[in-house]
């Protein structure tokens, strides 16, 4: 019985602005960081460095978009970091076996998607909590990565593969990987905002039971969501492997938490129902900018960790505070 708000108010404006507001406030934070860091070191604002930030943020942005889908359903995907490593390894093994680069990448991406399907099936049909299911696959897939490589990173990859990460494009001199990230963000931003799957994702996070009773195939949607997350993690795996020209079984360790942090800074809620792709992209950029800017200002690496932790807490705290009032 919420009598207060039932009466005429400016709600149309408020509804639209809740998402725009999230974007504006995160972008605002980004701008403030940019100004502060430019004062500390004028090189910060150089186009070269901005490209660096975009490049450094790319893997995190890609996985954070997937994590946003999962968080909206009020789940969590802890297996991302392991999928990054193992999909890169699968692709690398295929390349070393003489497969063409494109086919090897498809193999790596399919492997990632497969892990996502497995996560979804464990959650939906195995009735495991998302935390437990993905924690299990996290360890299993990391183990698989180590087993496949016997612990030794796979190097000497074809040049055409490594170019997907590093080669700078004719357009604005932007590295290919940033374009890949951009395209993935547009595609999955559209999926979340404008498609049936996206709508069902929000609905499940808002009220799972009501969604099921509305005739939505919740099982299928949940599997799709986890598949998207792992598929995007596999993309990050391709890019990271290409960046360092080495598929390491240790790659991506702990990245799942960066993904959660980015989503949350960008307005997603770990309680489900909320989150948008543009917010997440900005959230990941905030973290990447913070790291880059602190590096450029020559801050102690130990203090950097503290600052980033405080920013994550602060961002979410401010958001809660604003929402409750």
């Amino acid at each position: 019985m919420n009598q207060a708000a039932a009466k005429p108010t400016m709600n149309k404006r408020r509804k639209i602005s809740r998402q725009t507001r999230q974007i504006v406030s995160t972008a605002g934070a980004l701008l403030v960081l940019a100004i502060v860091f430019t004062i500390a070191n004028p090189n910060f604002i150089s186009s070269m460095n901005i490209l660096n930030i975009l490049k450094q943020a790319t893997p995190i942005i890609i996985i954070a978009i997937g994590q946003t889908f999962v968080l909206i359903t009020s789940g969590i995907d802890l297996s991302i970091g392991s999928v990054i490593a193992c999909s890169g390894i699968v692709a690398a093994i295929c390349m070393r076996a003489g497969w063409p680069v494109w086919l090897s990448m498809i193999a790596g991406l399919l492997f990632g998607a497969g892990v996502g399907v497995l996560n979804g099936v464990l959650i939906v049909y195995g009735k495991l909590p998302a935390f437990i299911a993905t924690m299990g696959t996290m360890t299993t897939i990391r183990g698989l990565a180590l087993f496949l490589t016997q612990g030794i990173p796979i190097g000497s990859l074809p040049k055409s593969f490594t170019q997907i990460g590093t080669q700078r494009n004719w357009l604005f001199n932007v590295p290919n990987q940033v374009w890949i990230m951009f395209i993935l963000a547009v595609i999955f931003g559209f999926v979340l905002a404008k498609t049936k799957v996206g709508r069902y994702t929000y609905a499940m996070g808002s009220n799972y039971e009501a969604t099921r009773l509305s005739g939505v195939n919740v099982n299928q949607t949940l599997i799709i969501v986890y598949t998207i997350s792992a598929f995007l993690a596999a993309w990050a795996g391709m890019i990271m492997t290409a960046n360092v020209i080495s598929a390491a079984p240790t790659a991506g360790d702990g990245y799942e938490l960066d993904a959660v942090a980015s989503s949350v800074i960008g307005g997603a809620s770990t309680l489900g129902g909320e989150g948008i792709v543009p917010g997440t992209v900005l959230g990941a950029l905030v973290i990447a900018t913070l790291r880059n800017g602190l590096n450029l200002s020559g801050a102690s690496p130990f203090i950097q960790k503290m600052i980033i932790g405080i920013v994550i807490i602060g961002a979410v705290f401010i958001d809660r505070f604003r929402r409750n009032d």
Partner: peptide, 8 residues
């Protein structure tokens, strides 16, 4: 509980 996605 069963009818509405209350935050939508």
């Amino acid at each position: 509980r069963d009818g509405l996605c209350i935050s939508m």
